[in-house]
Amino acid sequence: MMSKTYKKLIATRLSDDFRSAIDIQELPIPTPNSGEILIRNKFAGINAGFDTLLCKGNVPYVNLTPPFDLGVEAVGEVVEIGEEVNTIQIGDAVATTVRGGGYREYQVISAHQAIKIREAIPEVLTLMPTGMSALVALEEVGEMKSRETVLVTAAAGGVGHIAVQLAKLAGNHVIGVCGSEVKAKLLESLGCDRIINYRNETLDTVLQQEYPNGINLAFDCVGKQTFDTCVEHLAVRGRLVVVGFISEYANDLESVTQPRIYQKLFWKSASVRGFLMPHFSEYAEEARDRLLDLFYTGKLKVAVDPREFHGIEAIPDAVEYLLSGQNCGKVVVKF
């Protein structure tokens, strides 16, 4: 018998600490209106950086006032449909990427916002929107070509391990930066050409000694010193895409006093480019379909972190786990 209530996670206040900003609510399970569907979420993806920034009030394009719902990507099963829903049936597996629809056991959304998938498995959470971000950032912002040298930081993370594979599929030499032997083994299995474990080697030294002509495309999710090193080693006409800066999400931004970076970029005609998926929404559908096809045909491997998190109550632990850098692949919570 289906429960009459469900739990969801909300932000009740703005705070630098995710755990202190949130609360769990228990509410009646909603009934879908015309054109809507009710989904029982089975898995949700953890986006610790976005979650933290959102609860700090540091996401300018959202600018929410508490209380507000949290979580984005989820996969689940349709358990009820409203009138005039013709494209989806009860029992269908679907994926959703609605902000506020992830960290909850049930959600009601418009039928057209749901993406039908073969099975509600956690691997799909790595493709939407995480993998979509990797693909669009590399191709549209980074202008990725073939036979280039591509460097990916946080390469064993949810976004990074997809970026590594997409760069390899495009015919590039790929350098993956990570912080443990377990992560290095994952990158080796994905075909990474040069793996740099920054706990054993220095990124700057390796690039200086082994890549004297520089990096054509850097895909950076880390920031701070890693960002500085990537800028330093860009090739002529090299591009650095800022996909995130997880090293500073949980703290105040570091103040830096040094020469402006245009003197490093100008003489090499190099560039630094920011990427935020909402600014490239016109590419989302094609990217999603291509990634699903690559996954279903076995051309793209998806890594889900083996550590298990169960239930709404485990989400703060999952966020802190991801921010600690221990994860290998996508971190998910199971409902």
Rank of each mutant, 00 (worst) to 15 (best):
I312G: 05
M132P: 06
E313I: 02
M1Q: 11
L14D: 05
T97D: 02
S271E: 12
I261F: 14
R147H: 14
F245E: 07
T65L: 08
I246N: 05
E232C: 13
L54T: 05
R194G: 06
K168P: 01
M277Q: 14
E320G: 11
R13T: 10
R307K: 15
F50L: 12
G176H: 07
D204P: 11
P67R: 06
Y296A: 09
Y61D: 12
G142F: 02
V241R: 03
M277T: 13
Q209G: 05
T12W: 00
L190K: 09
I246D: 02
N200T: 15
N200H: 15
A167Q: 05
E313L: 03
R307N: 11
V174T: 04
R237C: 11
E140M: 10
R194S: 09
G158E: 01
H173L: 13
F295S: 02
E83F: 12
K7M: 01
A111D: 10
R237T: 12
R118A: 13
Y296Q: 11
Q165C: 09
D305T: 11
S189F: 10
A114P: 03
S271R: 10
G142T: 05
E201N: 14
T226D: 09
A318P: 00
I261V: 15
V152E: 02
V206Q: 09
E248A: 14
K330V: 10
E181G: 10
A44H: 00
Q25N: 08
I196M: 10
V236Q: 13
N213H: 14
G57Y: 08
A11Q: 05
L138F: 06
I37M: 00
T96S: 14
N33G: 15
K56W: 00
P212L: 09
N213Y: 12
L14E: 03
V98E: 10
L300H: 08
Q25T: 00
S34E: 14
D289R: 13
L203Y: 00
G82C: 04
I215C: 03
G179K: 02
D228W: 12
I90M: 07
F295V: 04
G102F: 04
A11M: 06
G158W: 08
G57R: 07
E248W: 09
S146H: 09
F43I: 01
G244W: 07
L292C: 11
R99L: 14
A218K: 04
N213Q: 15
V124L: 10
A235Q: 04
F50P: 00
L125E: 01
P67V: 04
V222E: 04
